[in-house]
């Protein structure tokens, strides 16, 4: 039936056009949304940066306001990464090279479960379980014996609402993502590299040092950077745990801590009004910029060193 073939052909072409238009439209919508995020933050935040500081509570200038917050954000995230990165690499190695083969997938799944626990739950767990544990057992000892190091000086917080507690909880929260990415690259180590190393008489650890770690290094670094990005933007756990003060504080054991940008927004936004709202939005823009740079660096490292380590 020639006639029906012709009508079908026209219908299909229209279907194709509609469908490709829809999917291209969705792709473009993503670009628009992202541009929208930056634009709306800038439009609403502008008044907070350049507006009359007389009408805002506190600080004289925006830089003075955001400075300690940026410091606190970077400080907390760095602490978290310091704890999480070595542990995550060890756990990833355990899952990829030490655990029984049949268990490996399940163990990875358990670690992923850790990532799925909502941050607010980590927050209230941190303050009710972890903080008392640390203030009872570890903090006084650190303070008594190591107080010549600026980090451990000052008066120990009795409630445990200190930077170190916040950093530790953040570490637990970013551990899964760093572990997942490291595990992924470790598993991709070429079988032949590993077997060649073992065939030359290397022990398992020597094989890991010779074959697995050089191969996965850039992947691990980019995973750590992505974890850092997570920690920078993490809000609720810090908001619940940290006892914030205004200014720059190096000590990690006291009640006086520089707040993080995200936690400061969460704490102040619900009650803020007027230009204070705009200023908070402006700090959000700063946070967006910081995480953007960190994530871009992570991607660059991943792409430069190892093509398959796409997070």
């Amino acid at each position: 039936m020639p006639s029906s073939t012709i009508t079908r052909a026209t219908v299909t072409r229209r279907g194709d056009r509609v469908f490709s238009g829809l999917s291209r439209g969705a792709g473009i919508a993503i670009l628009v949304i992202l541009a929208g995020v930056a634009t709306f933050l800038f439009v609403e935040g502008r008044a907070g940066i350049f507006g009359d500081t007389e009408e805002m509570s506190g600080s004289d200038s925006f830089l003075q306001y955001v400075g300690p917050l940026v410091f606190g954000t970077v400080f907390a995230a760095t602490l978290a990464l310091l704890f999480a990165a070595p542990l995550a690499v060890a756990v990833a190695l355990y899952i990829s090279h030490y655990a029984p083969r049949r268990l490996a997938q399940t163990l990875g799944y358990i670690i992923d479960l850790l990532a799925a626990i909502p941050s607010v739950v980590f927050g209230i767990w941190g303050i009710t379980v972890l903080a008392p544990l640390l203030t009872d057992n570890i903090y006084p000892w650190l303070n008594a014996n190591l107080d010549f190091i600026p980090f451990f000086s000052g008066t120990v917080s009795t409630s445990g609402r200190s930077m170190l507690t916040a950093g530790l909880v953040l570490a637990v929260m970013i551990l899964p993502i760093v572990t997942a990415i490291s595990r992924e690259v470790f598993l991709q180590t070429p079988r032949l590299h590993e077997e060649a190393s073992l065939a030359l008489g290397a022990t398992r650890w020597e094989m890991i040092r010779q074959a697995v770690i050089p191969y996965g290094r850039s992947g691990v670094i980019s995973g750590a950077m992505l974890g850092l990005g997570r920690a920078l933007g993490e809000t609720m756990a810090v908001a619940i745990i940290l006892s914030p003060s205004d200014g720059y504080f190096w000590s990690v054991l006291t009640n006086q801590n520089s707040n993080t940008i995200a936690s400061n927004i969460a704490l102040k936004f619900p009650e803020a009004y007027g230009l204070d709202v705009n200023r908070l939005i402006a700090t959000g823009l700063v946070l967006f910029a910081i995480t953007f740079v960190v994530n871009a660096l992570a991607r660059r490292i991943a792409n430069a060193g190892f093509s398959g380590a796409d997070g």
């Binding site: 995020v37 709306f40 609403e44 933007g233 995480t291």
Partner: peptide, 20 residues
């Protein structure tokens, strides 16, 4: 841009929706 979007801190997404 999807990569960049993955890295948006959740509170920034909240601020965007609020501002919108």
């Amino acid at each position: 841009m999807v990569d960049v979007m993955t890295g948006i801190p959740s509170i920034v997404a909240g601020l965007f929706a609020y501002a919108l």
